[in-house]
Nucleic acid binder design. Structure first.
Length: 523
RNA sequence: GCCCCUGUCGUCUAGCUUGGUCUAGGACAUCGCCCUUUCAAGGCGGCAACACGGGUUCAAAUCCCGUCGGGGGCGCCA
C-alpha cells in the first residue's frame, strides 16, 4: 500500500513536475569508490548511473576516494581508477586532481573533519566510547546466532561516563566510538528505485563510528562527507541497502538532513552469483584491452537495468543522457551478458568513421607484430589500414580479434595446406587454371578486382573450367585457405599492401601464383 | 539462523502506478530459409516467458495474501 502510494507520487506528471522543481535544482551526486583494486563493471555501472543522473538534470558529479581502509587502499589503484573513469568518459566536476569547493576529496585527507564531529557527538551524549574486545564481541555474536537471533551489540559500554572513558583513552587503552541507537521502533525511507523500505530498529545495534585506530568507519565517513559535500542523491549498489538504518540514524544524530537514496541492483554472472573473474572479464581495464569500445561498454551498462522508453538499444552517450530516468531503473539483479556486449560493440565499431577505425585497430595490430612502429606508419599505411578495416570491421566484434584476421593477408605458407586445399590444388582444373593465370598475371602491373574479373573470364574461356572448379583453385592459390576472405576485397588489399613496408612482408598476387606453381611442380 | 531486497522468453528488458487495447512486444543468443564461388555480415522467419498457490473482480502479468526460488546484509571492510 505504502509502496504503491510512494511510487505514484513520483510518477504522476503533475507531482513529478513539482518534485523536479523542488529537488532537481542543484543536483549533486557522487561516485565514491575505494581504491582497493581494478574498477569492476558493477562499480562502473554505479558510476555511470550517477553520472547520467547528474548530466540529465544538469547537476554536479563528484568523485570521492574512500581510502580509509589502510591495508587495501593504494595510490596506484587510485591512479588506475581515474584512468579507467577517464577512458569511460565519465568526467567529474569536482574531485581529486580537479578540485572543487567541497574538498578535500580523499577521505584520508578529511580525518580532522570527522574528528570534530565525533567530539560533538560525544559531548552531546549521542555517541560513547566502547572498550569491548573483538574476541568478546565475536563470542556474543556467535551466541546470538546460535539462539537464532540477529546479533546486536548489547550497548554495555554506554554505562561508562565520558570522563572515565577519556581517562582510559589517555592511559593508552584502545577503544572505539559508537553511536547510541534507540533499539526499538521503525524507520523507513523512500528509495528512488525500490519505493518505501522499512526497517525494525530492534535489529540495529550501536554501530562503530570511529575505529580504535582513530579512522572513521565507512558508515560514519559517508554520512559526514555526503552532508558536507551537499550531496542531494545517493545512488549506489544494493549491497548498501542494509546500511540504511545506521546511516539514517547517524544523519539524525548529526542533525543533517538525509539526501534521497537510490539503491541499484547487483550485476551477476550467468550462474547468478556476483560477477567475478571466473565468469570472464570483470574489470573495465580488461574490456579495454580486449578491444571493447568505451562507448559500447557504457551503452551495455546503461541497458543493464534500464531501457529507454522508445526501446532503442544502440545508443550514444548523448542519447542515454537525454533519456535516462532513475525512476525507471529495474529493481531486480541483472546477469551480465557478454554476447550482447559484443554485439553492441560491433554496432559501435561500425559507426566509427574509417580513420577512427584505423586508429583504434592499430595498437592491436602493432602488438601482434603486423604493423610497423607508429613513426614508421606513412600516410599510405594509414590509408591502406582504413581500406582494410572497411572490410575487416564486418568480421569481428572486438578489436583484439583483428590480428587473427589480418594475418591471412600476411601469411602465405604452402607447407601448412590442409587436406581439402591440397585436393583442390591437385585437381585437373587447378593445373590448367593456374598455368593460365600465371601467363596472364605477369602482364598486369597492379591487379585490381576489375582486372581480376576480366582475367577469370579469359581463363574460363581458355580452360573450360567454371564455377567451383575455377574459383576454388584461385582462392587456394591466392590465400592458401579454402574459405574466409572475399577475393574482391582480398586482392586489392594484398596488391596495395605489397608495395608497403611491414614487419612481415606481404606478397602480391603474381608472386603467390608463382610460388604455388613451383610448389605443385616440386611434388 | 535472523533482517532487507527481488521474481515476465536461456539472457537484458517493454507492459504493472491508472486491471480489459497482452492470442504478452523488442533485443541478444539459438534454430531454419534467402543472399553468396567460401566464411562471415546482412535480410526474412521459427522456437521460447507472466515462479507457484490462493483470493478480489464480469475481467489479473497488472491489486491483496501466502509459499517457493534468487540476491544482499548481519565487520573496529567499503
Amino acid at each position: 500500500m505504502q509502496l504503491a502510494e510512494g511510487k505514484r507520487l513520483l510518477h504522476t506528471s503533475q507531482d513529478s513536475l513539482k518534485w523536479k522543481k523542488n529537488n532537481m535544482d542543484n543536483i549533486r551526486v557522487r561516485f565514491a569508490p575505494s581504491p582497493t583494486g581494478f574498477l569492476h563493471v558493477g562499480n562502473a555501472r554505479t558510476a555511470l548511473f550517477n553520472w547520467l543522473f547528474a548530466r540529465h538534470n544538469r547537476g554536479t558529479y563528484i568523485l570521492r576516494i574512500e581510502d580509509t581502509d589502510e591495508e587495501r587502499s593504494t595510490g596506484e589503484y587510485e591512479e588506475k581508477l581515474i584512468e579507467d573513469l577517464e577512458w569511460l568518459a565519465l568526467e567529474w566536476d569536482e574531485g581529486p586532481v580537479k578540485g572543487g569547493g567541497s574538498g578535500p576529496y580523499r577521505q584520508s585527507q578529511r580525518l580532522n573533519i570527522y574528528q570534530s564531529f565525533t567530539e560533538k557527538l560525544l559531548e552531546e551524549g549521542k555517541a560513547y566510547y566502547c572498550f569491548c574486545s573483538i574476541e568478546e564481541l565475536e563470542k556474543e555474536k556467535k551466541q546470538a546466532v546460535s539462539r537464532g537471533e540477529t546479533p546486536v551489540y548489547s550497548g554495555k559500554c554506554r554505562m561508562i561516563s565520558l570522563e572515565d572513558a577519556k581517562k582510559r583513552i589517555c592511559a593508552g587503552e584502545q577503544g572505539v566510538v559508537r553511536l547510541k541507537t534507540p533499539g526499538k521502533g521503525e524507520l523507513s525511507f523512500e528509495d528512488l528505485v525500490r519505493g518505501r523500505v522499512c526497517f525494525n530498529l530492534k535489529y540495529q545495534g550501536d554501530p562503530v563510528l570511529v575505529r580504535s585506530s582513530g579512522l572513521p568507519a565507512y558508515n560514519y565517513a559517508v554520512v559526514i562527507d555526503d552532508s558536507l559535500m551537499k550531496i542531494t542523491h545517493v545512488i549506489r549498489g544494493e549491497d548498501h541497502l542494509s546500511n540504511m538504518p545506521r546511516q539514517l540514524l547517524t544523519y539524525e544524530a548529526l542533525s543533517f538532513p538525509p539526501p534521497k537514496f537510490a539503491h541499484l541492483s547487483m550485476v551477476m554472472g550467468e550462474d547468478n552469483t556476483r560477477l567475478s573473474k571466473r565468469h570472464g572479464a570483470t574489470s573495465v581495464d580488461q574490456f579495454k584491452t580486449d578491444g571493447i569500445l568505451s562507448a559500447a561498454l557504457i551503452n551495455y551498462l546503461a541497458l543493464l537495468g534500464w531501457a529507454p522508453s522508445d526501446g532503442s538499444e544502440v545508443l550514444t552517450l548523448e542519447d542515454v543522457v537525454r533519456q535516462f530516468d532513475i525512476l525507471k531503473v529495474s529493481k531486480s539483479a541483472a546477469i551480465f551478458d557478454y554476447d550482447k556486449l559484443h554485439w553492441l560493440n560491433r554496432q559501435h565499431m561500425r559507426k566509427l568513421i574509417p580513420s577512427e577505425q584505423a586508429k583504434q585497430s592499430y595498437p592491436y595490430l602493432y602488438k601482434a607484430g603486423l604493423m610497423p612502429e607508429e613513426q614508421d606508419m606513412s600516410g599510405n599505411h594509414w590509408e591502406w589500414l582504413e581500406k582494410a578495416m572497411e572490410y575487416f570491421i564486418e568480421k569481428v566484434d572486438h578489436f583484439s580479434d583483428l590480428p587473427e584476421h589480418f594475418n591471412a593477408l600476411f601469411e602465405f605458407s604452402l607447407d601448412e595446406l590442409d587436406v581439402e586445399a591440397q585436393e583442390i590444388l591437385n585437381s585437373e582444373c587447378a593445373g590448367k587454371v593456374l598455368k593460365s593465370i600465371a601467363d596472364k598475371i605477369k602482364k598486369i602491373v597492379l591487379l585490381d578486382f576489375d582486372k581480376y574479373a576480366e582475367l577469370t573470364k579469359e581463363i574460363k574461356a581458355e580452360t573450360g573450367c567454371k564455377g567451383k572448379d575455377l574459383f576454388r583453385p584461385l582462392r587456394v592459390a591466392l590465400t592458401t585457405k579454402t574459405s574466409g576472405l572475399d577475393l574482391d576485397k582480398f586482392i586489392p588489399l594484398v596488391e596495395e599492401g605489397a608495395r608497403l613496408v611491414f614487419p612481415k612482408p606481404m606478397l602480391n598476387c603474381a608472386l603467390r601464383i608463382t610460388k604455388v606453381i613451383d610448389h605443385i611442380k616440386l611434388k
